[in-house]
């Protein structure tokens, strides 16, 4: 693998990340021990941003895979491609990360089929071995390779859960939405809205989060707040921006739309 490949996955500029607890120390300790890490938390709370930040901080290339039901083992490991009548092996993202010694981040890992995920098992124990059956090859991951997965326990489903044999290979860090003061700070930084407006937007998010389990599967995320702040910065009125970024994407239920819209009005 050439340096050019490595460069493609390196994060040059420091991503903005405001710690919400001890997650940086925990992650660094886990990485030092090459312990795979699972990030748990609701959607839009900053898990992916955290991984980007840690990849930058550790100066390691980062390969991100968004998992879905169609994801196959070949999608992770690699496959032969045809090029001008000849075949060429193309490493999949997991193989790339293992060869480059980077961080491989499997986002929403629970969405992938359980049989697909079994390919990570030999890579996540002390063998650190990646097997490519199509190529009749097995190799040991570079010493600085590490695997990170994320999942959202909020989508509670008895049938959509990681196998214990997969889960128990990871150390886990539990993420939640940032506490109020930090979320305001994040919003001010990311969207450049005034502090007063950021406070009001966070109040709306807090109101929306109280409806989790009362009609909403998930509350208003920090990411949604950033969207709202960005729209406001682009000249949209706060109420319209909140409708577009916070209320309408969250639900189609008329009762919930009414409740959220009214909450937006009284918070602004």
């Amino acid at each position: 693998m050439s340096h050019r490949d490595l460069d493609a996955y390196l994060i040059r500029d420091e991503p903005y990340y405001l710690p919400i607890g001890e997650e940086i120390e925990l992650f660094e300790a886990a990485y030092a021990a090459r312990l795979p890490v699972m990030l748990k938390g609701p959607t839009g709370c900053g898990k992916t941003r955290f991984v980007q930040y840690m990849a930058w901080r550790l100066s390691r290339p980062l390969v991100i895979v968004a998992c879905n039901e169609e994801l196959s083992a070949s999608d992770l490991l690699g496959r032969y491609l045809l090029e001008g009548g000849e075949t060429r092996w193309q490493d999949g993202p997991l193989a790339i990360a293992a060869r480059l010694g980077g961080l491989c981040y499997l986002d929403e890992v629970v969405e992938a089929r359980q049989d697909t995920l079994v390919v990570i098992h030999p890579l996540t124990d002390d063998r650190r071995l990646l097997s490519l059956p199509s190529r009749s090859e097995a190799f040991q991951a570079r010493a600085d390779f590490s695997l990170i997965v994320s999942h959202n326990p909020g989508y509670q489903s008895a049938l959509k859960e990681l196998k214990p044999s997969t889960k128990q290979r990871f150390g886990a860090i539990d993420f939640g939405y940032p506490e109020r003061a930090r979320e305001i700070e994040i919003l001010c930084h990311e969207t450049a809205v005034s502090r007063e407006l950021a406070e009001r937007l966070v109040s709306i998010a807090e109101a929306g989060r109280r409806l989790k389990g009362h009609g909403l599967d998930e509350g208003i995320s920090t990411r949604m707040l950033v969207h709202a702040g960005t729209l406001i910065r682009h000249g949209i009125g706060p109420e319209a921006a909140c409708q577009m970024a916070l209320v309408q994407p969250l639900t189609d239920d008329p009762e919930l739309v009414l409740a959220l819209s009214a909450s937006v009005r009284v918070c602004l």
């Binding site: 109101a207 109280r210 919930l256 009414l258 409740a259 909450s263």
Partner: peptide, 14 residues
């Protein structure tokens, strides 16, 4: 009255 109870839950968590 639909949605009004949800509105109050959003505001006060009650």
């Amino acid at each position: 009255t639909a949605g009004l109870g949800t509105f109050i839950r959003a505001l006060w968590g009650a």
